[in-house]
Simulated assay, not measured.
Amino acid sequence: MAHKIGVIGAKDSVMPFKLFGFEVVYAVESNQVRKTIESMAKHNFGVIFITEEASELSIETIDRYKSDVTPAIILIPSHNGTKGIGLKEIQDNVERAVGQNIL
């Protein structure tokens, strides 16, 4: 069974992902973001892209999935630009895997 790809965030930031056939959910409130992540995880999503702004609304939920292989939750910048949260997550993961920050 193939995994699906989902995108969560404000409409202006995530609408373009529909062009690639990703399932897009507009969520800008904490409860919406949390419920969407839980639903996507339960329904065979392999990757969930979430804007940095939306990720700040559901940190605890995202943290629960960090050690799982799927879904991989990837933080992306919004249309307003980056906050550096996604890059920090990548650096932390590389450091955990390699033993030092090589980025």
Rank of each mutant, 00 (worst) to 15 (best):
L103E: 00
A27T: 02
F17D: 01
T51C: 07
V98Q: 03
K66T: 10
I90R: 13
T51D: 05
E89P: 00
G46N: 00
P16W: 09
F45S: 02
T70L: 08
I48E: 01
L57E: 01
H43P: 01
F22T: 03
S13T: 09
V24W: 05
K42R: 15
H79C: 07
K83Q: 10
D12L: 15
M40S: 00
E95L: 00
V33C: 03
F22Y: 15
I37K: 04
G6C: 10
S39G: 11
S55C: 11
L19V: 12
M40T: 01
I102T: 13
G9R: 04
I102W: 07
G81Y: 08
L19G: 11
G86Q: 07
P77Y: 04
F17S: 06
L103C: 06
L57T: 00
P71L: 14
V7N: 01
Q91S: 04
L75V: 01
P71D: 14
I59M: 06
S78D: 14
E60T: 11
L87H: 12
T61L: 11
I73R: 11
I8L: 13
V47K: 13
T70K: 07
R34D: 12
A41I: 09
A72T: 05
I62F: 07
F45R: 01
S13N: 07
E38I: 10
A27I: 02
V98W: 13
Q91I: 12
E52S: 09
Q100T: 02
K66D: 03
D92L: 15
K42T: 11
N44P: 05
Q91V: 05
K11D: 10
G84E: 04
E89G: 01
G46C: 02
A27P: 05
I48L: 11
L19S: 15
N80R: 14
G81R: 03
I8P: 02
A10V: 04
S30E: 05
K66L: 09
I5G: 12
M15P: 00
G81V: 00
V25C: 08
F22E: 02
G9P: 03
G21T: 04
G21R: 08
S13M: 10
R34W: 01
I50M: 07
S55N: 03
T51K: 08
S58G: 14
N101L: 07
K4E: 13
K18R: 07
